[in-house]
Nucleic acid binder design. Structure first.
Lengths: 104, 104
DNA sequence: GAAATACATAAGCACAGACTTATGCGATTC
DNA sequence: GAATCGCATAAGTCTGTGCTTATGTATTTC
């Protein structure tokens, strides 16, 4: 059950911060650490968790490893969320837009 | 940051099962336990976590406590997800392929 | 090819979380 | 009003998680 790893991965505030940084643009692990007060191994371990959750993917570039958002994880959350669409407040317009995209 | 509690709450498979049962229809804590092999205190503690995450809400009815899905939590997930909407429409095909693999 | 760089992995520690048993508390039943 | 029922809370235990320091592994640079 990959949903387990996705939700668990996002349950950590540090990992959500990392994810948000990557959502603004792919970068390597060292660049991610800037302004974050986190050790290199800790960052590496967080990225490993995000990778296993399909929230992030890596791409070797020389001796750097570039990370970027992996749409798979987000799509799985959307899929999970869609099961409960009956409960979503109708007033959230952004939600409607998202549903349209999913139904397409 | 309530998102923390939401994702952490859903990171536990037992709690996701409880949530899914409630999504099919509100019921009290004892009814939730049926067919679940979970102790009464454990259920109570899980419901407490789900409540704090605004994923579930309670309603006293005599000596029973009826639980039901709270749309607030779901809406917050949707809002969080909407921030990264740019990442999945382009990859919706990848999602379909992935879902096929999962269904088989 | 030796040193340096970017990152991953190993091992250990401290704390959080999911369970247990025991007990408390409000509501109902008799 | 005593017993029972539905549920919450307390306290303890065990496992998991996030950190640390230390070391390993590619890749590049000199």
């Amino acid at each position: 059950m990959i949903e387990n790893e996705i939700f668990r991965a996002l349950g950590d505030p540090t990992r959500r911060t990392i994810f948000e940084k990557l959502a603004a643009g792919g970068m390597n692990a060292s660049a991610l650490r800037e302004g974050m007060e986190i050790s290199q191994p800790a960052m590496s371990q967080h990225l490993s968790v995000l990778r296993n959750a399909r929230l992030v993917r890596e791409e070797r570039q020389g001796r750097f490893v570039n990370y970027e958002v992996d749409p798979q994880g987000l799509a799985l959350i959307a899929r999970w969320l869609a099961k409960y669409r009956a409960y979503w407040p109708a007033r959230i317009d952004a939600l409607k837009i998202m549903l349209k995209d999913m139904d397409q």
